[in-house]
Amino acid sequence: MADDCFGHPRLAALYDPLDPDRSDLDAYLQMAETLEARRVLDIGCGTGVFALLLADRGIEVVGIDPAQASVDVARSKPGSERVHWICGDAAALPPLHVDLATMTANVAQAIADPETWQKTLRAAYEALRSGGHLVFETRDPAGRVWEEWTRENSYRVTDIPGLGSVESWVQLIDVSWPLVAFRWTYAFAADGQVLTSDSTLRFRERDEIDADLVARGYVVEEVRDAPDRPGGEFVFLARRP
């Protein structure tokens, strides 16, 4: 089930305005270009930002996400007809033959259940053509980034056209290694409504991810640094032989 920040219609509408800087996607666009990908599967496509950037470049894109509200936002955007949107998890994928599969931002870590993680890796493998690549990022646990997830560090007020002023902040709920749980709170000035969304991320060690990929038949070609979070993330580039 999708977290409320993605699955609740009012919160899904906030996602892009609260996170307008998506320069983190530049590295993925560059990899798609370098790999000469013409068909891409965007797993955990959310509100469709990356899928639509790819489509703008003439790439055939399938975007899949379990949150109906987020997919609805994606479908409402200009140019969305160029993307094939699917609401569901990786098990809902039709037969595909893509050059590249991606999981941007927190997608890989948000798949916290080990069985679902293995199913996702398998589904991505089956969707790739021979020689196709899977690319995703995950935070390095050594960075202990969750220690910064406090109201003091995250509180802000954002004026959003058509929605009004929205207060938002995050607070750590629990660390039960390797799971880290946190809660986002959103307060709407327009009507006083306060909504919360609880999320859990799984922090995987690099060796663990290597082993998972190899077990699913991938060849791990490279583990890169993330340009937007230097020293804080692993970016995996794995190939289906």
Rank of each mutant, 00 (worst) to 15 (best):
V49F: 08
A238F: 06
L128M: 08
W117F: 06
D19Y: 10
L163V: 08
V166R: 05
M31E: 10
D56A: 13
L14H: 10
L172T: 09
A27G: 08
D3F: 10
G164N: 12
R224D: 11
R183V: 13
D191S: 11
T138H: 10
E60S: 13
A124S: 05
A105S: 13
A187T: 08
G63R: 14
V220W: 07
D56R: 15
V223T: 14
N153D: 11
E126L: 07
R75I: 02
D191E: 12
W149F: 15
Y186C: 03
A110Y: 01
R57N: 05
L237K: 07
E152W: 03
G79K: 03
S23H: 12
G88K: 07
V49E: 15
L35N: 11
F136C: 03
L179P: 13
S23A: 14
M31T: 11
R239M: 07
I173A: 15
A55F: 00
S197P: 09
L100H: 02
A67V: 08
W117Y: 09
W117A: 06
P241V: 07
D42P: 15
W184F: 13
D24E: 13
A190Q: 03
G63P: 13
Y15M: 07
R239A: 03
E167H: 14
V175I: 10
D207N: 11
G131E: 02
D42K: 14
